[in-house]
Design a protein around this nucleic acid. Sequence first.
DNA 1: ACCATGTAGTAGCAAAGAGAATATGCTGTG
DNA 2: CACAGCATATTCTCTTTGCTACTACATGGT
Lengths: 172, 172
Amino acid sequence: MTTPRLSTTEYAVLGVLAEGPSHGFAISKQLDSTAELGRVFTVRRPLVYRALDRLVETGYAEAISTEKGDAGPNRVIHRVTRPGRRRLNQWLTEPALHVRDLRIEFLLKLTLIRRSGHSPLDLIRDQRTALDQTLSALDEARTEPDDHVELWRQHNAIATAAYLNDLEDLYT
Amino acid sequence: MTTPRLSTTEYAVLGVLAEGPSHGFAISKQLDSTAELGRVFTVRRPLVYRALDRLVETGYAEAISTEKGDAGPNRVIHRVTRPGRRRLNQWLTEPALHVRDLRIEFLLKLTLIRRSGHSPLDLIRDQRTALDQTLSALDEARTEPDDHVELWRQHNAIATAAYLNDLEDLYT
DNA sequence: ACCATGTAGTAGCAAAGAGAATATGCTGTG
DNA sequence: CACAGCATATTCTCTTTGCTACTACATGGT
């Protein structure tokens, strides 16, 4: 009985659901590529439903009722469970371990936290700390001057540091 | 009869095959995570064979012989066809359109070109030109100061520009 | 003789993504 | 008022992708 691993898609759906009981179609609108959240991380409609199924299976969400929609089949209203909310909150406070995950994971967490009304400053600072470790590890690893991959990593880590600084300024 | 789209994995295999007739196992060693190419873009063994199958189906490669290996089943030697080489060379000269594709696509092309003995300067400069367009587009789009996604893109584009400058210096 | 190791290729499952299909009520138009 | 189109809401299914594990064969050590 290990705790099931959730994909970013599933966390995104869980995150939207945590803003209040909702149904697949409404959630998918929040995660559409034109919406605020969807611009950060898009989840297409069928995937939202699959994620919801999975969240129910894992006990992180549950169906509470069905109600008539504006049209079409009945809406199935879901809400997060207590374990689901715990799991989400834990995820929301973890910084991304790899720079390549920042664009999606970190930004998604940041946006969800902001929408919930809390301050994202803790997350930004934790991410900054995690990045500093990456930076010093890169400094040590730098052996060959023509290692294109390491060079790219270095430039990117530095850009990410500047980005985090900007964000910290924005929220202080 | 449109020209079939190839995945990055398939281009990687095609690229290795273009260095000389070879067989799946040998190609997979080049694209292993510890090898020069594999550090840029890893392709696992079963995927190499699938890519080879697809390249044969699309007419970009062909099996030319089977020979006894050092051990185990016979090797199936493949080589690129004329259309395959044309297709590869076309791909190799195209810069990546999105900054997020640089780490993989551009670096893969760069490494393949370098290994072939040609100068990667043209690709670097073309990529630089493509990036300049991205940069000016970003400057115009910048409306809201707290748009985290745009801010991220901007920092990244700038870092990429610096990276390309470093590379250009390396090869001049 | 046996077992580990390295070579070479194959099988098959599970997740992820995209498109289309289905069901349903509302609205406008002739 | 019939009926086509449209928006809502969910489901189905196909394809692609990525792994893990397996078969098969030869060599070398104990």
